[in-house]
Design a protein around this nucleic acid. Structure first.
Length: 631
DNA sequence: CTAGGGTTAG
């Protein structure tokens, strides 16, 4: 069975160039037209074959059509005579057809493999990974031995399709045919394993490679980075610096983006930035963009902006990263302004641009603008893209337009983890906890593999609906069947839920037994639950922790005082008040307002530059005016 | 005689 049945539309063939005699010079006698000699006889034969069987009525080989076809292939067909056709983009299927035709004629020489190679390389370069893999399988069924270039390209398709099983088979084949030490193939294998999360195997491949070049170093670092192993990535980078191999732009882009996983990121990032400058090469937009990304993730949006402003050529990658930086730092409006600037400067947006903009629309709850972006996406023909689909769902559910989110979800032809998670989150955020859980179960039924973020959402949904038993089940499912290591977020969710449902002892135990140090948010939520259930003993402990973690916050004092007041322990309440006063903790660290003589005075207590705030405090102490927490 | 790695969404 031929893997490709129908032709991609072969038009436009452009203006038909008349080259009739080219095809006739099979003996190579026509010296005037060099192209003619470059066409292999078998290929011409294949083309003829193709022409003749195309339509029943036109038996007489539409030579003109074939000629224009060849002509439309352009200059790149020149090396055809060496069987080195890398046809122009979009001609993968056509090239494959030539191969199939040739193999049908019975010319199963070694060079047929070369023809297949070019077809497969083209298909994989054009992003037709599945087609490339099918062609490879077909070629194998003809018992044609793959070339090493083809293996390289097919491994690339394996990691992008993705088809890990075929990848494993090919790896076996590679070991058999002794290509295992080839650096190109090694880099692809590394990529395959690290993209499928098998870092141990990737590491083995790396260790087994005969020699390493800068690409294999970069690949292993990128693998570590993609799998969240920032420390290993940095370690590899240091090892690399000890060799003769010098890092280049790719290396820096990778290692800078690996920084986000590190505890000590805020120190490593700037020193890598310094190293980029020290190495003295002109950083390209990928390097700058990963730096922008780094700085904006650490809240240093000014640094990021400076990098952006100082860049000579602002391409779409730089725009994307600074816009995403703005969006992460709650500066959505700035991002939207930049989009206008982009359009003025004729910078063509990509799917990432639109995904980022949708994110801004979502966090600013700008439904109308979001819808405009949606129409733009339709116009560009990107509505089926998974990244855009995920952002659409997110935008609509943040704008409380859950039906639209649903529509986007249903419309998607392919759904990845993020789309499912977005939709599940969407339901949960819009108060539809049960539907959220229903969808999650459907996700599991369809064989989805939820990750930590997904489970956090599910547990949050359980939390809002007060479903402790369900949450327990899901938590077990997460650690058991799906083998995930719970993060602080998931523990926090469970502990919060235990607290809310009055299981304070379990909450306390969970906090003590989890492998993380409970943070202020966790203690505050626990303290809140203690207040609800009038649990003074635990409440006091929680408050004591909070006094240490957040010495300037008045909230724990007040909650503790309220808890004690609830059960009538007035002496203890007074003690808390005294403690608060002696430590100089003041109520209202955020915006507050007071009423004096029917006038409302608004001030920010923590804002020392505000001239009025100390005076207002003095005033407050004198007249004992009621203070209300502002927002 | 060709080939490989880098920015992004929950």
């Amino acid at each position: 069975m031929l893997p490709v049945r129908s032709y991609a539309p072969l038009a436009p063939l452009g203006r038909r160039r008349r080259l009739p005699d080219l095809l006739c010079s099979e003996n190579g006698s026509n010296q005037h037209h060099s192209t003619a000699r470059l066409l292999p006889r078998s290929t011409v034969y294949a083309l003829r074959l193709r022409g003749s069987r195309r339509r029943g009525q036109s038996r007489k080989t539409p030579a003109g059509e074939i000629v224009s076809l060849i002509a439309s292939l352009g200059v790149e067909t020149v090396p055809l005579y060496r069987y080195k056709i890398v046809p122009p983009s979009g001609f993968g299927e056509f090239a494959l057809d030539v191969c199939c035709a040739e193999s049908k004629v019975g010319r199963l020489f070694g060079r047929t493999a070369n023809l297949f190679e070019s077809a497969i390389v083209r298909l994989s370069k054009d992003g037709c990974f599945r087609e490339a893999l099918e062609s490879f399988q077909y070629m194998k069924s003809l018992r044609i031995k793959p070339t090493k270039f083809m293996l390289c390209s097919i491994l690339n398709s394996c990691s992008k399709a993705p088809d890990i099983f075929l990848g494993l088979q090919i790896h076996a084949h590679i070991v058999q045919s002794g290509y295992a030490e080839n650096v190109f193939i090694g880099a692809q294998l590394l990529d395959l394993y690290s993209k499928s999360g098998a870092m141990e195997d990737a590491r083995k491949v790396f260790d087994c490679m005969g020699e390493h070049d800068h690409v294999s170093w970069t690949s292993i670092m990128s693998g570590f980075s993609q799998n969240g192993c920032g420390a290993e990535a940095v370690l590899s980078f240091r090892k690399m610096l000890n060799t003769d191999i010098r890092p280049n732009c790719h290396t820096f882009a990778t290692i800078i983006s690996a920084c986000k996983w590190l505890e000590a990121a805020s120190q490593v990032g700037p020193s890598l930035h310094a190293l980029v400058i020290k190495f003295g090469f002109k950083p390209n937009s990928f390097v700058i963009s990963s730096l922008i990304d780094f700085y904006s993730k650490h809240g240093e949006i000014d640094q990021a902006l400076e990098l952006f402003e100082n860049s000579f050529e602002k391409d779409v990658i730089l725009y994307n990263s600074i816009m995403s930086g703005y969006s992460q730092n709650m500066l959505g409006e700035e991002a939207l302004k930049l989009f206008l600037e982009m359009q003025e400067k004729d910078v063509v947006p990509t799917v990432f641009t639109l995904a980022t903009l949708l994110n801004c629309c979502g966090s600013l709850a700008l439904l109308q603008l979001g819808k405009q972006m949606h129409s733009l996406i339709v116009k560009f023909g990107w509505e089926r893209n998974v990244a855009v689909g995920g952002s659409l769902i997110d935008m609509y559910s943040k704008c409380a337009s859950i039906d639209d989110a649903c529509r986007s979800f249903d419309f998607a032809s392919e759904r990845n983890n993020i789309m499912w998670t977005s939709m599940i989150t969407g339901y949960a955020q819009n108060g539809r906890g049960l539907e959220s859980l229903k969808l999650f179960n459907k996700f599991l039924e369809e064989g989805g593999k939820p990750d930590n973020v997904c489970f956090t959402t599910v547990l949050t949904a359980c939390n809002h609906a007060g479903l402790l038993d369900k949450a327990n089940c899901y938590f077990k499912l997460m650690t058991g069947k799906y083998g995930l290591v719970p993060e602080l977020d998931q523990y926090a969710c469970m502990i919060d839920l235990y607290g809310r449902t009055g299981h304070l002892r379990e909450a306390k135990e969970a906090m003590e037994n989890m492998p993380f140090e409970p943070n202020a948010v966790l203690w505050s939520s626990f303290l809140g639950s203690c207040k609800t259930y009038c649990e003074t003993k635990f409440g006091r402990e929680a408050a004591m922790k909070l006094f240490k973690i957040e010495p300037n916050s008045a909230a724990p004092y007040i909650t503790l005082a309220n808890t004690l007041a609830e059960v009538g322990m007035w002496n203890e309440v007074a003690e808390v008040r005294r403690m608060m006063k002696s430590k100089g903790v003041r109520k209202g660290t955020s915006w507050s307002w007071i009423e004096v003589d029917n006038m409302i005075h608004v001030f920010c207590a923590s804002d020392k530059s505000h001239p009025k705030s100390p005076e207002i405090y003095e005033e407050l102490d004198k007249v004992n005016v009621r203070v209300r927490e502002g927002s």
